[in-house]
Design a protein around this nucleic acid. Structure first.
Lengths: 332, 332
DNA sequence: CTGTTAGCGCATTCAG
DNA sequence: CTGAATGCGCTAACAG
């Protein structure tokens, strides 16, 4: 920067001011400075800037497995929205493991992100989150909720899942199974309770044997399907708690030679871009993923400027997408 | 940090040295410092550190549409590998647009990333890349190649695509169409030329009408299929240049009521995690995506430490995954 | 083994 | 409208 100043025949402070338009500068001088910048190929050092301003214009994003279509759409939305406000994203994969998550949180905090968006792991409440609140880092939670007095944004899970059960019941199913997500996640719990509510409303019996855990992952979900099918009185319909488990369930059913929806009907939480291309097309609950991302950065930027605003929880409405895996007839 | 020093009864330089283990310190003193750090909840300011060391321990990743399964697996691999070396990722979406890409490149360079991994857009050679080389930012290209004297890592496209054509020809197809990717990307060009090579080897005629551009996107690919089917002498098999276009092609075929592979056989570049679940299961060329990411950060870290090493181009071998969309019989 | 000190590149008072 | 000087928090000589 001093090079630029010298070449333009001004002081560094003037260069700083033209760069930030932070005080009136002679238009002619401005031009000279810009010329100097161009001929020198100068690029402002945001690191030094951050040091004095104590603001990096960057946000941390702690998330698990970007490979999950749900999360990567979220990342996409957040990156785009953050960019609109001149913020850059620092990315960290928590591996959905509390310890690893803490490492990521530390790393991003050391880099002095202005705020953090995090999809908390099951153990976040005892590791990562306390660290953040103790450090006073503006934080918003996405997808999963934690009673930690933080801003959070996600979807309404209970009613949505209950509606799924209701729909399956309308198709005449009496024994409906559920493959649930990893324990410790609010989404898993809410969807299971939605499942039970749905059963109750439809006047169906609760059978603990019909509730199996797929730990939010592909392979475990496949195994869960096998267990379900091996039951003396197996379900004729299954509800699946998240997108990854749907893959496993589909494979499990295929490998067992069961026809969907003929032998077993399926309805799943989380839509896929290709949900209409599998056979049969999947009936799902689609989350407004992009919207979640947008709201998350909005909330975060708000909190950065108003640290004392009361924490807010936003629940967006997911949407039931009827296709054929539930037993509905093809359109047209 | 001075707070820590005071509480521990030592100087800041000692604190710095215990933090970095950069010179022998009395074990007892070390303990006192660590205690102070803990009770104060001190978190080192990497920004200040970066300023003096002129190294941020962060890498920039410029990529388009994280939503693409290929790219998000790449991001996943790169994030993981970078993390293993203590580096954090700054993420930027180029939107595959040269101008936007330049903005992203600038933003990340201003944040003084130690190096940059970039999937260059079609116009990168005239905007983003010159900026990077002029600024002396260690850079490695992924997926697409550009003759810019930079390290780059991707797959062998030509032979792989030719093999796809060969396979389709073995199934008896004489008219094989191709839906190609966006112009200006090396991958698009290489795959088209592989297509032609394959035709030649199989002794089939080249028909320009059978080559339609799907611009690497879903909708355009669907339109491309329509155009192909409307031909007086439509193809009985189609090769698709990338994953997103496969979605479009599948929809186009379905909407036209064509059966795959009965009416039209399909073979596509890029595998999906769910390629076995669509009907029929997709025959694809699977890239060693994870490996590409790993090699990219290896190359980048190498270049950061050895700026004058000769640029290297790594071509990894993709793998032909035979399923049923090409006309192969189901296994078993 | 430990303390003192001089910048890293910039934003920002305070004087002109 | 402009320049000189201070310090952001830390590392790395340089002394002791």
């Amino acid at each position: 920067m001093s090079d630029v100043a010298r070449l333009a025949g001004v002081s560094v402070s003037t260069v700083s001011h033209v760069l930030n338009e932070t005080r009136p500068v002679n238009p002619e001088t401005v031009a000279r400075v810009h010329d100097a910048i161009r001929t020198l190929g100068y690029s402002r050092n945001t690191i030094a800037r951050a040091l004095v301003r104590s603001s990096t214009n960057s946000l941390g994003l702690c998330i698990s497995i970007i490979t999950n279509p749900y999360f990567n759409e979220l990342v996409h939305a957040i990156e785009g929205e953050a960019g609109r406000y001149g913020h850059t994203l620092l990315l960290g994969d928590t591996l959905d493991d509390a310890e690893h998550e803490l490492r990521i949180v530390r790393a991003l905090h050391e880099r002095r992100v202005d705020g953090m968006i995090i999809a908390p792991s099951a153990g976040a409440a005892v590791h990562g989150l306390p660290h953040l609140t103790a450090a006073g880092v503006p934080t918003v939670l996405i997808d999963r909720f934690v009673p930690a007095g933080l801003d959070q944004v996600g979807v309404e899970n209970t009613e949505a899942t209950a509606a799924l059960v209701g729909h399956l019941a309308e198709h005449g199913h009496r024994r409906i199974g559920m493959i649930s997500g990893a324990v410790g996640l609010s989404t898993s719990a809410e969807r299971v309770s939605g499942y039970r509510v749905g059963l109750l409303r439809a006047g169906l019996d609760q059978d603990p044997a019909l509730e199996v855990c797929g730990t939010s992952q592909v392979e475990p979900a496949r195994a869960a399907v096998e267990r379900l099918l091996a039951l003396p009185d197996p379900p004729t319909a299954i509800i699946i708690g998240n997108n990854l488990m749907t893959l496993g369930a589909l494979r499990g059913l295929r490998d067992a030679g069961r026809h969907v929806p003929g032998d077993v009907a399926l309805a799943a939480f989380d839509d896929f871009p290709w949900a209409d291309l599998v056979s049969p097309p999947l009936t799902t609950i689609a989350q407004p993923v992009y919207q979640i991302g947008v709201e998350a950065v909005r909330l975060l930027l708000e909190r950065i400027t108003q640290p004392d605003r009361r924490p807010v929880t936003i629940r967006l409405e997911p949407q039931l997408v009827l296709r054929q895996s539930c037993g509905c007839p093809p359109p047209g």
